[in-house]
Design a protein around this nucleic acid. Sequence first.
DNA 1: CTAGTCGGAAAGTGGGGTTTGCCGCAATCG
DNA 2: CGATTGCGGCAAACCCCACTTTCCGACTAG
Lengths: 217, 217
Amino acid sequence: MRLKFIIADDHPLFRGALRQALARKSGEADIIEAGDFDTVKKLVLEATDIDLLLLDLTMPGASGLSGLVMLKAIHPALAVVIVSATDDPATVRRALELGASGFISKSASIEGIEKAVSAVLAGDIWAPQEVDLGHEPDPEISDLIQRIRTLTPQQARVLSMLAEGLLNKQIAYELNVSEATIKAHVSAVLQKLGVDSRTQAVIRLAKIGGDGVSMVN
Amino acid sequence: MRLKFIIADDHPLFRGALRQALARKSGEADIIEAGDFDTVKKLVLEATDIDLLLLDLTMPGASGLSGLVMLKAIHPALAVVIVSATDDPATVRRALELGASGFISKSASIEGIEKAVSAVLAGDIWAPQEVDLGHEPDPEISDLIQRIRTLTPQQARVLSMLAEGLLNKQIAYELNVSEATIKAHVSAVLQKLGVDSRTQAVIRLAKIGGDGVSMVN
DNA sequence: CTAGTCGGAAAGTGGGGTTTGCCGCAATCG
DNA sequence: CGATTGCGGCAAACCCCACTTTCCGACTAG
């Protein structure tokens, strides 16, 4: 079966470069490109048979690492390789904790990218040389991540829309369910995150963005 | 009259260094130190006769540049000099747009700090050499900043508490007014920011943090 | 004096959030 | 295999909170 990739980056030129690297490595493959985060989210929501997602950290429409969190919550098995201009150890480390399967610096060579991709496709985790597994990161954030991990896919979707400031009614429309259902989901999400209101949920979520990009929209 | 300074930085050693620099420059002066953002906020709320606030950008309790926004909204005339480890032009530029009176890199020399402080006390704006006035920053953020500028001090206080996820009831208690009053203030804030709900207000506010620090709590 | 601005407040409407109960479905377990 | 468990969806009732609107008094500027 043909492999199926998504390349998510707002820079068309760079998308092209990644596409070439993937094509050279994998021969024929379905490669879908996305230039903003909303598109990525839609693709992940609809297609479940994606082999690999290359995700830029700084994209319009939103989302530093918290975008990764949402995607992994919605689709836990999805293999995601983060592509980022910055590759400071702390960011790399957090990305891996958040469930990324790999991390590629934008300054990496074609060969480096190929290596990373094949490693991840083989089920391994790939990261640049020195991953600082030493100092533990912010426990508050780790806690939040763990909590988000306990969300069901549907709940994760609801959370992501919550973080865009949507009303329950609007979320219900987007997901084609009743508002009552959304209320129930929101209630469950708030409980799992350990907060009292949607506003507080949004605030806590915004903390993850923490690498130079605010999370929402 | 004695000058009155606030030094806000979470690193005690560095506070000491700043204190020495100030003392050397200004002779006798009241110098208050604060190690977290909540303390700073309280000080600014209570004392109106502060000549200068030295504000670190990365402090516990919160707040990248959006902390600056809140403080300036609450107390528009307050002179604030940002102290930051990073001094990339974009951050400096945005800080000045946000109403900072100066910007000091943490790697600055004592003399550099003294120069900055006296310039600001004289009513000037002080910034490191090359402030990139060229490329315009994110118009969305500029718009938001302008909107926040239109808030009255009380409304700004309400907004800052909103951003902490407080209930109207809690805000009312903190400010010693009735909940009904807070409701009216929130309503005014939402209108001025051009959003429909407190949640959306929080989301938009979180965008300002954008330099590596998430804004709230 | 008048107009504008701000803080405070009451009353009313609607949305948010909880709880409980129900159903269907799929995976898992005994 | 049937029973159990967990998720998704729906609903209704309930309470509380959020938000709007309107009004008032105080202060300030022109």
